[in-house]
Design a protein around this nucleic acid. Structure first.
Lengths: 350, 350
DNA sequence: ATGAAAGCGCTAACAC
DNA sequence: GTGTTAGCGCTTTCAT
């Protein structure tokens, strides 16, 4: 592949001149228009392309970001990645995706390779808190900025933490249900109580309920890392209580689907007998029966923000590690569909 | 960050010696065990990490693969990526994900950047045929191997093409339905007729039907790039025909969900009145109501195979471009769930 | 067994 | 305006 040297040789000028022209530095250091255009056209003819590798080696700046994840194929991770790529591309950066398997002790190999590649900055999703800590400790000495995205139990001083604004999301959800006359609202999370995501949802839910002076009934609030069948079972259990909630907020989109199924299994009509509202992905609910309303989390925006903030801090090459982790919460969006309705007459008393 | 030179200086040996030891080339060119261990331990103490950038610049080999996609956040793309990353990691390679927006003329910028980064090989999904052609033409002069994954209308001579084995997948699907007594089977694809995926599914479907001497009823076979509502409408239309199919194979998982919804909307019970079988993603059907049987496509394996084949061809640095595109078809898996059942008595006549 | 020297392709400081 | 020189951090060939 043709190099800067080849062009210089062909034209009888120095490599420096070629480099300057091709990098558009010619305005600073003045190159004659004649030489300039000769170089440009020759480069074109010869099919020259910078060797980004050599450039990176020379400048020590790879213009590559690393994205660490345990589950690149799950919806949220993929959305975050997409948002991140778009923003990175816009700023002339690449994204390398690394998969981590063992996230508690944090895959040493992956970390090693991040450092070897002289990655400019890193962001990660779905790591355990201890994983993030390990990451942080490894990165700090090398001043590699770090951002943690989505529900990760980020320890103090671990850089940026970007997540959904659960509070406004839950507020919107409860507001909406309240406006439809619902007073008995349950929360089935589909996430383990251990996870930050579950705690955040629960907390935001309790807060939103309090704002409306509604009682949080413990039996109607359940957490757990459920598969389809477990979700079904829990939902049936909750919907069979008396009194039962008239509306259920599901902690994830898949959980929502299973709750709808459970309701139907009990002979309840959605939304006539019970309203169901999902939380998470925007799209999937559109295919549910009935189409499921959701509080959509801003995954793409989260990836985008992660990159934007990391790149802002790149030039100074210095993370404010000592500061407590800075949280950025991005707004959710309530998407109404056919799974919520005015509470039925027989169910109006709290 | 500490370099090979630092270590050499500290130890009073040459950079060469350090390089040899750290690369385990010491067996070829014999280095004394003493020196060897001194170097290793010093490297450890000083926290040395190869500068992969410099190495790549020097060897001209970046050990990075590029993954081009128009929709990194869609299920199949993400699955393929995951499989690819796993295989790449296993072989000491990285994967850079590039998003392409304009795929007909192929995002020139992205291509430019692939070449600049001296990517070792590329694989892509969701490109148009002309996009692949552009890619191929740009890559050939530089001997960059290319693999096209999944439903892409790959022109001749465009390297490897890796896709699902639609024939055995459809055979399994039709076999299964046939065994349940179904004779009137429809195919609602949810993919535009223009797309390779639709043509492949249709062809495989017709073949499978013929194997069982079943008639393909044109009215029951529909293609189109449908959203939820359009799918619903088409499904209702087909299910309202008389005679109507007793079983429907949906071309994608989401389409399957909407078909179930449409059936229910018409007062039909699934699977009692009509059986429904999805095609595509393995997981999502598990959350459907009823849980939906699917022919699962081997997305992760496809990514894995793409990488494996590309890496095989890396050393010789030469693609057999002149050969017709070599197709590799990977087996699907029939996952049975509750959406299919023996055909009802009233529906037994073809 | 070790080192010197040249090379990869690029950038950057400074001289002419 | 352009060229010289040195440097990035590594690899590789060839002396010693």
């Amino acid at each position: 592949m043709v190099s800067i040297t080849d062009i210089a040789a062909r034209l009888g000028v120095s490599r420096t001149t070629v480099s300057l022209v091709l990098n558009n530095r010619s305005d600073q250091l003045r190159i004659s228009d004649a030489t300039r255009s000769r170089i440009l056209s020759t480069a074109g003819e010869m099919g020259y392309r910078v060797n980004a590798l050599a450039r990176a080696a020379s400048t020590g700046n790879s213009r590559v970001l690393g994205f660490l994840t345990t589950a690149p194929d799950e919806g949220p991770s993929a959305r975050i990645l997409t948002g991140a790529i778009d923003e990175a591309t816009r700023q002339g950066f690449f994204v390398k995706v690394l998969r981590i398997h063992n996230d508690s002790a944090l895959d040493d190999d992956a970390l090693e390779r991040c450092l070897e590649m002289r990655l400019g900055a890193l962001f990660c999703v779905y790591l355990s808190g201890s994983g993030v800590q390990v990451l942080r400790d490894a990165l700090e000495p090398h001043s590699v900025p770090l951002a943690v995205v989505d529900d990760v139990d980020t320890p103090q001083n671990c850089g940026l933490h970007i997540l959904s604004d659960y509070e406004s999301g839950m507020d919107a959800a409860v507001d909406h249900l309240f406006a439809l006359g619902h007073r008995r609202i349950g929360l089935l999370m589909g996430l383990s109580e251990q996870e930050l995501g579950a705690r955040q949802r629960r907390h935001a839910f309790e807060r939103a309920m309090a704002l409306h002076q509604l009682t949080v009934v413990p039996d109607w609030v359940r957490a757990g890392d459920w598969g389809p069948n477990e979700t079904d079972a829990v939902a049936r259990e909750v919907l069979s209580l008396s009194p039962a909630p008239t509306a259920i907020i599901a902690g994830t989109d898949f959980t929502g689907l299973a709750v709808i199924r459970a309701a139907r299994g009990l002979g309840l009509r959605v939304p006539d007998d019970v309203s169901i509202l999902g939380f998470g992905d925007a799209r999937i609910g559109d295919w549910a029966d009935p189409p499921m309303a959701v509080v959509a989390q801003p995954f793409a925006a989260m990836g985008q923000m992660a990159v934007r903030h990391l790149l802002e801090r790149l030039p100074q090459k210095e993370m404010p590690w000592s500061d407590p982790a800075r949280e950025i919460r991005l707004p959710t969006e309530l998407i109404l569909r056919a799974s919520t309705a005015r509470v039925s007459q027989t169910n109006t008393q709290p």
